[in-house]
Amino acid sequence: MIVAKRKPLGEIAEMLASYKKVTVIGCRSCVAICLAGGEKEVKMLVSALKIRNRKEGKRQDFEGLVVERQCEKEWVKEVEDKILGSDITLSMACSLGAQTIGDMYPKHLTFPGLNTGIFGVPEEQGVWSEKCVGCGDCIIHTTGGICPISRCAKSMLNGPCGGSADRKCEVNLEVECAWAAIYDRLKLQNRLDLIERITPAKDWSTSHSGGRRVFVREDAKLTQHQKKGKEVVL
């Protein structure tokens, strides 16, 4: 899932300072699961901002609400009146949600309330760790199901670097060396021969370096004829 973190309250308050009517919109998907921008977090943020304003003798109207998935226009459309009825929208979704609202209502201001962080998994309650960087060319079938791109600080493809010692990463001694984990996993799977195979330099053209990436499923796209018969948002 996409893991995000709320921006510091002071930063949010500063962003919103010159606007009277603020709509705060959360999302019930990834950011709710990682406790950053779900219903509870929206309520808490609105409440904290109100208390802060009371202390500072400031008046602002806040309204907090949550949509099912802020990165999908259909769900955002349901709260269109709340968005357009305010001076500014604070998105408590990941950057995708904030940008979806921004794209749908380009004249309206939409600011991010969260810092979008990683593609991560919950390791334990309250802990999420990065396991994918979305490079667009997955190779974990050759590395025991462990991604060396995201989990190795240097994204090494052919074994550990010279700095790996005692199974720890030299960049951060708290972190396990990804290649130590890959070795263990391949050994467990009786596939240690893979560790001796040379992986050629990675083709990064599928990664972010080529600019914005767009994934298309032609069979799922609507034809012009279908679009005419269906109310399309935007």
Partner: peptide, 8 residues
């Protein structure tokens, strides 16, 4: 923590 961030 939230209160401290809010200056309360």
């Amino acid at each position: 923590q939230v209160l401290a961030e809010a200056g309360i």
